[in-house]
Write a protein that binds this DNA or RNA. Structure first.
Lengths: 229, 229
DNA sequence: AAATAGGATTAGGCAACACTAAATAATCGA
DNA sequence: TCGATTATTTAGTGTTGCCTAATCCTATTT
């Protein structure tokens, strides 16, 4: 295997973004990538050409982009780094939940394979990062699951939080305040019509609390049937 | 204080190099910087203009470059990062002596102030890195000492190793094999004439060993009078 | 089928960093 | 003091990644 040529930081960011966008089904569109990375669509067009030249993606003009095997492996390597770093920063260095993402975002481009593997073993090879996202293995396998978002859950259901999106620090802080984090158990008490607030019961040690959140926020919380494993 | 605007990786590398070259007295010459960073002299000329424009250095054409206060502070910040990282990698993550430098060289440009300070406190705010180099404090003070190199020590003297240069991994491995690392006690048994090999006794737990090293290698080992503190 | 709204791409630029080759300044030796 | 050597700078390029403005597809509507 000829592989692991080192990729630049921006390239790794593109691949991660494409990986993520592609997961929902369709190929990633120029515009989506641009929005995700907050750069102009024109810049994306340029980079897409380069990525395609390097064989990391395939590009059908005007209809989007897909990772090649090589590109996918590179994306997963970066994702592994990112998530291991997040674990390490929270568990060993005491980073708060909401600050870990940005730091990992920087370090993932600089950390060597050796460093990541040393951190991973120090942690006992964790399977999920602090936000519940699965960590790809060294050899590029991920246990990505199809999870529902909290916005899709009907009134009366009882669910367990599996994962929350980690991009926005303020959002994470707020969710933590509400007691919503991976592992939390929730019961949906009520769903107001017209995309109205979702009222739910959050189990807490011994007791619990009633909370209400908007649909917008709920789409960033992934859940599964309570008790399932 | 307006300060800590983020600097690019290359800029930080230049400032570190200039700091180091300047320490021996004269201003840093274009050529020395080029050699240190293994880039062309022409490239250095270009970067020097940019650094001067940003107020990080002063440049007298054809006679070298000096750090400004701001440049010095930036250099020391980077040095602190580098050395804290080296400590952390060896002491917490079990990195071998000779591999730590290159990893730190990458991470120092990506690690946030917060990360470095968390590592520093985890280590109990160490004063020296694994190669014996002093670690600048948060507020930019360093205890740089004037040390002799092993090449300057006369036959019969007894000295203690304080610091070894960390750039070259092979050199470090070899020195470690000989038992020469910060803290080692040495007695110079003989100095062959015409820059010939230096024969010395290296104390080791219980006993010791006789070794011979060339002058070239000896200039990378810094020592102090034995027993001084 | 033609008009149009969006998304995608090209054209043309710019800044940071690196390079080689050529020109110029400084210095050292005779 | 005059060269000759060496150090430094300038000139001219290339690459990566980003930008805005202008153009070009495509798909949807009418």
């Amino acid at each position: 295997m000829p592989e692991p040529q080192p990729l630049s930081g921006p390239v790794e960011d593109y691949l991660k973004a494409i990986y993520d966008l592609e997961r929902v089904g369709e190929p990633a569109s120029t515009n989506d990538i641009a929005l995700r990375l907050t750069i102009s669509a024109a810049s994306v067009s340029g980079m897409v050409r380069r990525l395609a030249d390097q064989g990391l993606i395939t590009h059908e003009p005007y209809r989007g982009v897909r990772l090649t095997g090589q590109g996918r492996r590179a994306a997963l390597r970066t994702l592994r780094r990112h998530r291991i770093l997040e674990c390490y920063l929270t568990e060993v260095l005491g980073y708060p939940w909401d600050r870990v993402h940005d730091e990992a975002e920087q370090l993932e481009h600089a950390a060597s394979e050796e460093l990541i593997e040393r951190m991973a073993s120090a942690l006992g090879d964790p399977l999920h990062d602090p936000h519940g996202a699965p960590i790809p293995t060294r050899d590029g396998r991920v246990a990505e699951e199809e999870l529902r978002t909290l916005a899709e859950v009907g009134a009366g259901e009882r669910v367990r939080v599996r994962q929350v999106q980690d991009e926005d620090a303020g959002r994470l802080r707020y969710l933590a305040e509400l007691g919503i984090r991976p592992g939390s158990m929730l019961r949906i008490l009520d769903r107001a019509p017209f995309e109205g607030p979702i009222t739910l019961w959050v189990d807490e040690a011994g007791s619990g609390a009633t909370r209400a959140i908007g649909v917008g926020l709920a789409t960033h919380v992934f859940v599964d049937a309570a008790g399932a494993e």
